[in-house]
Design a protein around this nucleic acid. Sequence first.
DNA 1: CTAAAAATAGCACGATCGTTCGTTTATTTA
DNA 2: TAAATAAACGAACGATCGTGCTATTTTTAG
Lengths: 211, 211
Amino acid sequence: MGKGEQTRALILGEAVALASQVGIEGLTIGVLAERLKLSKSGLFAHFGSREGLQLAVVEAAQEDFVARAIKPALTEPRGLPRLRRLFELWLANLDLPERPGGCPLLAAAVEFDDQPGPIRDRLAAGHRHLLATLARASAQAVECGHLAADSDTEQLAFELFGLVLAAHHHLRLLGDTTALERARRGFAERIERCQGPAASLGPADAAGAIA
Amino acid sequence: MGKGEQTRALILGEAVALASQVGIEGLTIGVLAERLKLSKSGLFAHFGSREGLQLAVVEAAQEDFVARAIKPALTEPRGLPRLRRLFELWLANLDLPERPGGCPLLAAAVEFDDQPGPIRDRLAAGHRHLLATLARASAQAVECGHLAADSDTEQLAFELFGLVLAAHHHLRLLGDTTALERARRGFAERIERCQGPAASLGPADAAGAIA
DNA sequence: CTAAAAATAGCACGATCGTTCGTTTATTTA
DNA sequence: TAAATAAACGAACGATCGTGCTATTTTTAG
């Protein structure tokens, strides 16, 4: 790795942290350069434009999320355990100490949801990817017999997304530390509903899936 | 109403619409003045500072939300009908034609959730108020026998919030027009869970509550 | 070790930001 | 209608924004 990519990565690390507080639109080349003790122009040269920086920040945050939440979840066995792990890691991502402002991607999604351009496109793509990952994990849980065969996995993914958003909202705006626990309860009870009387499992399988 | 308050209201109307697209932080006195064909300084005088403008915009948006969603819902009879109406009006508020950027309060909440100050305080207060309104409506539904006596109304309010947030997210970022329908399904099924086998209703009451 | 190349710094630009101030126009009051 | 008050304007300020240049330093390659 050349020196260029090295400092570029260093810049993006600080930029993602800063963006978690002030948002992607609040990111400023001057402030970022001052934090890193770089010159504005030196920093600027790495990205060619402000939008280039913003896009790079979004991509860095997305890669970080994949590395923190999605990839580790894949070590769990398919089905409910993996889905549960995914949800838990996702929640953990809302309150990282190195992200003082919460998840920068959620903030960016709200900031750019009505401003067409490459940033919005990238955010939407990542969003779709996460949604698909959730739905796939849910579908695998159905295949494994952990969830009822008639479960609507896309609806489930939608609602899990809602639980995380609500947790983020409550945690950050209200400082409500019970938010994460509420989200976990919502998850557990929502899953339970997919295992209702229609579920065609042996009791052993069902117990294993719940534990 | 003197001329001052009149134009002040006019300014805030345009400001709320603009803020729905660019956010509260994206609001600019210059741009706002140009849209209204006012001078920067003339507009500025109404609020004393940029933060004063931002705060006024938040308050105007909150009052508008109360007038659009909460107050009309109170015309419904207590209990489930009122809760249902509240949820429906809330969803309608996400996609108003005069708010091209969606709900400005949700956007503002994300923007300011980590920036202490009067704006954040005001947003948090409104948030708490809405949450309390949801929980109260749910509690009344329990009293009326529309929901099971052991329903956790605060947990319910939390999850309903999540459904709305998910709908907003999907609708605006992905342009997914099925998002509102997904939220409605989530609502219906979540309510159904509060009417489960533990519910001590006569069948007539239960049918009336569901219809 | 030296020359080519890459990375960073320094400086300046036009634009826009929020804000101040004095003036002018519009509105209300007497 | 005349005086008093309120509202809106116009110009300017210092600061900061993103960005384009040219130098200077640092890293890499031969």
